[in-house]
Design a protein around this nucleic acid. Structure first.
Lengths: 220, 220
DNA sequence: GCTCGTTTCAAACGAGTGTTTGGCATTCTG
DNA sequence: CAGAATGCCAAACACTCGTTTGAAACGAGC
């Protein structure tokens, strides 16, 4: 019975924290949704802050379980890896079955980090980002410095995160009609992959040209 | 004297709202910083929410005044326009003289829109975004549909906003050493412009090739 | 059936917050 | 100058919220 109650509280808390944020969510609201007494939070979790940290961790684990990274072997081309990376991240961020309170909560934590943030970064984001950098490295010229690879990685991440973190603004800028028609997860994966691969291709080409100006002489 | 007091309150409120958010800043904190009595807020602004809306508007006007868009004529090449657009937006978002509470406050409003958001979008963001779309259109193939242009615009915006909205995560991912060394505003303008122009160039090329496969036959 | 540890509950506590109030000081006005 | 209007202030009010409390209900083990 104990595990049952804690899980009920964790879920209710996750949903409410995701929707309204830490400060705007009251323990009373959480307990009402979880059908438990107000003092249950303090009894099982100590205080509101520790409940929040647990709820964030719970959300992260659920999210990773829902959209795991695909497995690759040595022959998988980097273009395919990049596409699948973007696909996985979009799935984690934007899947709208039940509109995924898990990612909403984690996005809040990205935008305004609290004590729950550091574990999230260490356990999840840093390895995830390193994986991306490896893919980008495969698609880059050999002589590019690390900080250039990292900036490209940031450019990729930012495009994906944008549609979750600034979703309200996106809707206001392009209208909800366009949004439903042309901004489905699949469309976004296509666009972001295409845009990124195009950029990398042209940057490799420009780099190569600067060493070997005879390759092509078309100006502009 | 009246204008003096309201301006003092607006500034104090803007700084505190930017740093701690709406809910976490109290009227008492604002009035203490502004050296006025607690009841001054209700006397001059009605209530806390209306003060917040005014503070956001005030911040937006100050930000636009600080980093106006450059003037262009008919002969300005679109590549230069894009670079200057990115430069202006980076300056608005990231200038750290006094670490610009104005943009912090506006970024909060982007991430979690309140009643103050709609005016900000209508008055500032929408025309700004339309301007960007015009530039992108100049750099695109003639047959690309509107939603493709818009997605490219989003890719540009997102790269810039990312460094303000997710700045804590950026620091955790790349380390504060790297951040100070390679992520100065100027470096970011360079990278984002280069990345975007490269993407557009290769996308134009790919588009052109699909109509005229004889242009180049290099595989990969 | 009794006991003891655990879980649940209604009620209360105490700190913090937005807002109001009633009066005092200052400034404008006829 | 008298009086009205405005600006300003300390105190109080009303309410919310996180947390605590003390007792009741429950359940396993002897």
């Amino acid at each position: 019975m104990k595990d049952d109650v804690t899980q009920q509280i964790l879920t209710a808390a996750g949903e409410l924290f995701a929707e309204h944020g830490y400060r705007e969510t009251t323990i009373r609201d959480i307990c009402k949704r979880a059908n438990v007494n107000v003092s249950a939070v303090n009894y099982y979790f100590g205080d509101k802050e520790r409940l929040y940290v647990q709820a964030v961790k719970n959300a992260r684990l659920q999210m990773e379980r829902r959209a795991p990274m695909p497995e690759w072997n040595a022959t998988t081309p980097p273009e395919q890896k990049l596409r699948q990376f973007v696909e996985t991240m979009i799935r984690r961020m934007l899947i709208s079955e039940g509109s995924s309170w898990q990612t909403c909560l984690l996005t809040r934590e990205i935008m305004e980090p609290t004590r729950a943030c550091e574990e999230m970064v260490q356990e999840s984001f840093l390895p995830f980002f390193q994986l991306l950098l490896g893919i980008v490295r495969e698609l880059s010229a050999a002589n590019w410095p690390d900080h250039k690879i990292e900036k490209i990685g940031m450019s990729i991440i930012s495009q994906i995160v944008h549609y979750r973190a600034q979703d309200r603004i996106v809707e206001l800028l392009i209208g909800s009609n366009q949004l439903q028609q042309h901004y489905r997860p699949h469309d976004l994966v296509d666009h972001i992959t295409e845009f990124t691969l195009a950029a990398l291709q042209a940057m490799r080409l420009a780099d190569q040209r600067s060493f070997d100006p005879t390759a092509s002489s078309s100006p502009n």
